[in-house]
């Protein structure tokens, strides 16, 4: 059984807001010295889900981790390799830069087709930088596979995958034949802490690098030129707060004044 995990390296979302800077002229985030590039947390959880299935299926199963990004994204790949994945693929090409969810899905789909024998793909429910949550679904469209998104539990047996999906008011269990795309949510649980022997084994594993030509992609279809999403304006919203103390000699008078004020502002 061959499972694929899609992993994205993102700027640390735990960065203090004061360190987060935006260049409004180019509508892009300015990389700050204090911001570390990390593996998107949801993708770590997706890796955990894939690894658990691999372990339940025995030795002839493997997990391949794919990341589209710059050379620095190798760190994210190594992290998933250290968790127990077998192979790593880096999709690194200037042509891929500046794309949107759609072009990303297109590149990932080409890579998965390139691998050939893939049974299932696991993605995080969303990347923790832009939080769009679209790549998983778009990928299943590109591949023309079934999809089950926002999973809190995944089980595999007899060629079928059964997924517990998180809903706003509970969860539902859906089941589908493979191949399929599953996006995994934080309700699934924490990703494992890598064991040192695996970390060292991961350090020795080579990561295959593929570009647009390897995947048979036309550069004009991917990256910025293939992108359907245009960012109009990128900015940090301004927040403001005012404090007003309610006048009044007694708590009752203060409360009455508060009610009046809230009603006047149409807040109640």
């Amino acid at each position: 059984m061959h499972l694929v995990v899609c992993a994205k390296q993102i700027p640390d979302p735990d960065t203090p807001p004061s360190a987060f800077k935006i260049d409004e002229a180019t509508n892009s985030v300015v990389p700050a010295p204090g911001i570390s590039p990390i593996l998107s947390q949801f993708d770590g959880i997706a890796a955990e889900a894939a690894l658990r299935i691999k372990e339940s299926q025995g030795d002839d199963s493997k997990v391949t981790v794919i990341s589209m990004g710059a050379d620095s994204a190798r760190a994210a790949i190594k992290q998933v390799l250290a968790m127990g994945a077998d192979e790593g693929v880096l999709l690194n090409d200037e042509a891929f830069e500046g794309g949107d969810s759609y072009t990303t899905a297109k590149v990932l789909a080409a890579a998965i087709n390139h691998l050939g024998d893939v049974d299932a793909v696991f993605c995080g429910r969303q990347a923790a930088d832009w939080d769009m949550g679209q790549v998983g679904l778009l990928l299943s469209e590109e591949l023309n596979w079934a999809s089950a998104i926002i999973a809190k539990g995944v089980e595999y047996g007899d060629g079928n995958i059964s997924v517990q999906r998180v809903l706003t008011d509970g969860f539902e269990t859906v089941s589908t034949q493979l191949p399929a795309v599953v996006t995994v949510s934080n309700e699934f649980g924490e990703p494992r802490y890598p064991k040192l022997p695996q970390i060292m084994a991961a350090a020795k594993k080579t990561v295959t690098q593929l570009g647009a030509s390897d995947l048979g992609l036309d550069p004009s279809d991917v990256g910025a030129s293939g992108s359907r999403l245009k960012v109009e304006r990128l900015y940090i919203p301004e927040t403001d707060s005012n404090v007003e103390f309610m006048e009044g000699d007694t708590p009752q008078e203060q409360a009455a004044a508060l009610v009046q004020k809230l009603q006047a502002d149409k807040l109640i």
Partner: peptide, 22 residues
């Protein structure tokens, strides 16, 4: 920690944080 990767969740988070964020 190193051989078994068996540690309390918060301790793990602290270690991961050191690895990722220094």
């Amino acid at each position: 920690v190193m051989n078994e990767a068996r540690l309390p969740a918060n301790a793990q988070a602290a270690l991961e944080n050191i690895e990722m964020r220094g």
